[in-house]
Amino acid sequence: MLTVNKLIPRGQGLAAVLLKRAARVELDWDVRQKSRFDATDSSGRTIGVFLPRGTLVRGGDVLVAEDGSLIQVVAAAQPVLVVRHCSEHGSAFDLLRAAYHLGNRHVPLELRPDRIQLEPDHVLADMLRQMHLIVSEEQVAFEPEGGAYAAGGHGHAHAGHDHGHAHQADHDHGHAHGHAHEPVHVHGPDCQHGHAHAPAAPASRGKPLGIAVTAAPAPHVHGPGCGHDH
């Protein structure tokens, strides 16, 4: 058995000539939603797939075997309920309503602009027909949504998009500064300024920022050398 423990979504980054030479393996959704399974590829080799738990295998993905060989996944045709709206008795909005009710039942759905696809279920089929939808059973590949918070695997992710705080590096405390701040001058014994230093005013609580606070003059202290005639 040939072990596989790596998957390349949609074969991204692989040259077309490599994909053309790769073996194929046809898998239905029941198998592809598992992260560990056995299968036989188009070369007759038995492969044992061991992927991280939660990984979904999609049609077009490429499996990488332990010997470096590539195996392209093909979504096998399988029985699927195809749901379309009735142009005479309804509208495309009926498909949205149907997706809502099926989603409440946690039914895996493949969403298309003009139809919904799900695995066969006669109870759900009857419910959909009562909603004036057209339900037919067809033999097609099934690729249900992976869910917005699906761990592992991959769904319809958009490469290059970051919907979080992409500008974190440029912003500090919610704003960016377009200029440098000059260092604050500190007065001390060696500052060489020709001015008298008044004691710092006590901090005034409740003062708005940006309002200058004038320091009170230093009180005169009477003593033997003050020069005053008391």
Rank of each mutant, 00 (worst) to 15 (best):
E143G: 07
H161N: 13
M131K: 11
G194N: 13
G194W: 07
A166N: 04
H163N: 13
D126L: 05
A196E: 13
E182F: 05
A141F: 15
V123A: 14
R129T: 09
G174L: 02
A169R: 12
G160W: 03
P144C: 01
H187N: 07
E119G: 08
H154W: 15
H195Y: 08
A159D: 08
A196Y: 10
H177N: 09
H195I: 11
H173C: 04
C191A: 12
A151R: 10
D190A: 11
M127A: 13
G174W: 00
M131H: 13
H173R: 12
Q168A: 07
E119C: 05
G152K: 01
S136K: 10
H177S: 08
A151L: 14
P183I: 12
Q130T: 09
P120M: 04
G155L: 10
E143S: 10
C191H: 05
H171A: 12
A148E: 12
D162N: 13
H187W: 11
P183V: 15
L118C: 01
G153K: 01
P189A: 10
H161P: 05
H122W: 07
E145A: 09
A196C: 10
F142V: 03
G164L: 02
P120G: 03
H181M: 05
D170V: 10
P199N: 14
H163E: 07
H179A: 12
A150D: 04
A176W: 02
H154D: 06
R129H: 07
V123W: 07
D162S: 06
E182Q: 12
G160I: 00
E138I: 06
D126M: 00
H171C: 07
E145T: 07
G178W: 06
H177M: 06
H154A: 04
H173D: 13
S136V: 14
L128F: 03
H165E: 15
Q192V: 12
G188P: 01
H132D: 15
H179R: 08
G152N: 02
H197P: 00
G146S: 12
V186Y: 01
H185L: 15
D126V: 04
A141Q: 09
D170E: 15
H177T: 04
P189N: 10
H193N: 07
D190K: 11
C191N: 08
R129C: 08
L118Q: 04
A157V: 14
V186I: 10
H187S: 12
P120L: 06
E137S: 11
H161V: 14
G146C: 13
V140P: 00
P189S: 11
P199A: 11
S136M: 07
A169S: 04
F142I: 02
E143A: 08
I134M: 14
H161C: 11
